[in-house]
Amino acid sequence: MEFKRLKEWKDKLHVCIRCGYCYEHCHIFKITNWESDTPRGKLILLYALLHEEIEPTDYMANKIFECFNCGRCDASCSAKVPVTDIFTDVRADFIDGGFDVKGTLSHINEDLCSKCGICVSICKYEARTLDKEQNKIIIDKVKCKSCGGCEAACPSGAAYIEEGYMVSEKELLEQVQCYLGGK
């Protein structure tokens, strides 16, 4: 598989010094707590892909699509690595390569969708279109930024994002108990 867009970022991937400051605010990392889900971890994977040291897999592709595009990694990077721009381009490479991904993208429950088109008009990234011939909503997996606008606007609950921002209630309670004087 050719990562033609990724290759354009080769020099920027050299600039990343892997300090890890980008994952301080990463929502995905806060949920999973695995370093391979951090912006730094993903950049390391892309570096390996670029140099053909690992094979692209569905698992890896899904990681790249697991991102809420909040842009905090970009903002925190003093080395000025355009993290989310790189991820967006690599997403296009993965789609071109035929990978079927879920990630944190928005989806449609066809059984509930009334094709009203509200999600199309509200999507500020123009990631949704109504295909009249097929009579279904088409989602552009590269353009979708997982903002959740469609999910909030959909009157029939058909638009959804699988992963959320929350931590589990159990973890939250444990943290609160510790802060209140230990156990």
Binding site: E35, S36, G41, L45, E53, T57, Y59, K63
Partner: peptide, 8 residues
């Protein structure tokens, strides 16, 4: 998975 191992 090799992807995780590579990062770690």
């Amino acid at each position: 998975d090799k992807a995780d191992l590579y990062v770690y």
